[in-house]
């Protein structure tokens, strides 16, 4: 709801034209009737509502939670709530934000790079043990997270990384999910003919990766990047285990705010809203890239 205007506003005319053009050659089925709009609007409303509710609480006093009928319009307390949030010395909120940006960006870049590379190898290159290795990667995703907590922590102790940001970065530079996703996508989206043609031209696999595969998988890579960024941004259990309160990620700051002893809901929600805001911004950025990427990819392939 809040986002509607900026999203539409950011569409630059050139991109729109490109999209229009691609629409003609694209695979969209039929024109949307009123029913489609109603259903989509409903879906959009349901998606946005809880976020909107968060915003409402963030702009009101602490009494909002638990009043009946529920309060559904924003109030004027946002500044006050944010002020209390920033004054809260225990939370280290700004430092948490900064740390989260750093951590999430590092992890995202690495995951996208390694996943597209490996995904390409699994989808389009033939090598001994390919299927078995892919299976191993899928299997790695099945490892319950809570399980690794203690051994991974012991490892961090041995490396001397406890309390340092690299402890929440390095173990996550690769992702089985990412590799699997890029493999699935590359398998269907990268044309074998193009790869063969490039090979005939004497291109090395690295060049093929760079010139053929990367452009073709960009939409999925953007989705993966977005996904990774958000997951890293929102991760709690591991940062909580390995970092300290004075060097937190933003979720740790939030936890400090929201944990049991004094629940100041409007402060918590103000924090949550502020912590979600950068994500929403990244989200808009990447959102355009996903959509734009799909269309541009279609033109370039």
């Amino acid at each position: 709801m809040v986002l509607a205007a900026p999203v539409e506003g950011t569409d630059d005319p050139a991109a729109t034209r490109r999209r229009r053009k691609s629409r003609e050659s694209g695979a969209e089925v039929g024109k949307a009737g009123p029913l489609v709009y109603i259903m989509l609007a409903l879906g959009a409303a349901l998606s946005v509502f809880p976020l909107y509710f968060m915003f409402v609480v963030a702009t009101r006093t602490n009494d909002t939670i638990g009043s009946l009928p529920p309060v559904l319009t924003p109030g004027g307390q946002l500044g006050d709530n944010v002020q209390r949030l920033l004054d809260n010395e225990d939370a280290h909120f700004l430092r948490g934000l900064l740390n989260s940006v750093l951590v999430s960006a590092s992890v995202t870049i690495a995951v996208v790079l390694f996943s597209t590379l490996a995904g390409f190898a699994f989808a389009k290159l033939r090598f001994r043990g390919r299927n078995a290795l892919l299976l191993v990667i899928v299997a790695t995703m099945a490892i319950p997270v809570q399980l690794g907590l203690i051994p991974l922590y012991i490892l961090m102790v041995e490396l001397g990384w406890v309390g340092e940001l690299k402890a929440v970065i390095v173990p996550f530079l690769v992702s089985g999910f990412g590799v699997f996703m890029m493999r699935q996508y590359a398998a269907s989206a990268v044309s074998d003919e193009l790869i063969e043609a490039a090979k005939v031209d004497g291109c090395s696999t690295l060049r093929i990766y760079w010139n053929v595969v990367l452009p073709a998988v960009r939409p999925a890579a953007a989705v993966l990047g977005l996904f990774t960024f958000m997951q890293t941004w929102n991760d709690f259990l591991w940062p909580y285990s390995v970092l300290n309160q004075d060097q937190p990620t933003v979720q740790l700051s939030l936890a400090t705010l929201s944990s049991g002893y004094y629940s100041d809901f409007s402060q918590i929600f103000a924090g949550t809203a502020l912590a979600t805001l950068p994500l929403l911004m990244v989200f808009l950025l990447f959102g355009r890239q996903i959509i734009g990427g799909i269309m541009e990819g279609a033109l370039k392939a």
Partner: peptide, 12 residues
Amino acid sequence: LSVILPMATSVA
């Protein structure tokens, strides 16, 4: 964008 907006929120 609106349908994938929920992803942007943390589980917490």
